[in-house]
Amino acid sequence: MRQKTIKNSEMKQEYGISSETIVILPDFDENGFLNALICKKDEITKAGLSPYDLIDMNLRFRGSSMRGALDGARTLLDKRYMNPVILDKERDIILFPSRSPFREDCVWLSLRHVRSYRRSGTSHTLVELSNNSTIRLDVSFHTFNKRIQRAYELRYKMQAQMIRFESQVVESGAGYHLKKSKKGLNYVGVEET
């Protein structure tokens, strides 16, 4: 797999993954290099990066990374492999892999754009997307179902965690005042006089 290092400031607008991104496909060029096809509602754009690197670049542009997103998903889901990633929780952009994200033939789907899916033979799944397009994936229905359920579980757990955290922040607590200790190394709480 080809790896490119791109600085955040160099990210091309057409490489941006947005709420309109439906699926990210692997695509090999004439020299055998892996690129990504970004399928949006009305257009398909070719990116000069692998799907994995494209998602990583978009996460870095938002202040994270693929490793951080996968580690976060692993923590929330308590599952080690093939986890979805939250690209942007405010815009509900959750991407999940059809197979191992490290495989060159991995297809990434946006959870919000999967309308329905069904068996298509013994080892394939036909997925209907939000723009009435379809994609036939070479992954079994059972495996695809596990992947999409894991993505829904990640969305639910992230939302539940945020609600829990926000409700704890709103509760009033005891006031305190902090100042540096006499030695000036640490802060200590002091009572008002």
Rank of each mutant, 00 (worst) to 15 (best):
M1I: 11
Q3C: 03
K4P: 03
I6G: 02
N8E: 14
S9K: 03
Q13P: 00
E14Q: 12
Y15V: 01
S19Q: 12
T21G: 07
F28N: 07
D29N: 11
D29S: 08
E30D: 08
G32K: 07
N35V: 04
A36C: 11
A36V: 08
C39N: 13
C39Q: 06
C39E: 10
K41A: 00
D42M: 11
E43Y: 15
E43P: 00
I44D: 05
K46C: 13
K46L: 14
S50Y: 02
S50H: 03
S50W: 00
S50D: 02
Y52N: 03
L54I: 11
L54F: 04
L54E: 10
D56T: 13
D56Y: 01
M57Q: 08
L59M: 11
R60V: 04
F61S: 13
S64H: 06
S64C: 13
R67A: 14
A69G: 13
A69K: 03
L70P: 00
D71R: 10
R74E: 15
R74C: 15
T75S: 07
L76M: 15
L77A: 13
L77C: 13
D78T: 12
R80G: 14
R80W: 08
R80Y: 05
M82Q: 14
M82N: 07
N83Y: 11
P84C: 02
I86C: 09
D88T: 12
D88S: 14
R91D: 12
F96R: 10
F96Y: 12
S98H: 06
R99K: 15
S100L: 01
S100H: 01
F102D: 06
E104I: 09
E104M: 11
V107K: 04
V107M: 02
V107Q: 07
V107N: 01
V107W: 02
W108F: 09
L109D: 02
L111T: 11
L111G: 08
H113V: 03
V114P: 01
V114D: 02
V114C: 10
R115P: 08
Y117C: 03
Y117L: 04
R119P: 15
S120Y: 08
T122L: 02
E128A: 10
L129A: 06
T134G: 01
I135Q: 06
I135L: 14
N145L: 01
R150L: 10
A151S: 12
R155H: 09
K157N: 06
M158N: 15
Q159K: 10
I163M: 13
I163G: 09
F165M: 14
F165P: 00
V169S: 01
V169A: 05
E171G: 00
G175R: 10
G175K: 04
H177G: 00
L178Y: 07
K179N: 07
K182D: 15
G189T: 15
G189P: 00
V190R: 04
E191L: 12
T193A: 15
T193K: 05
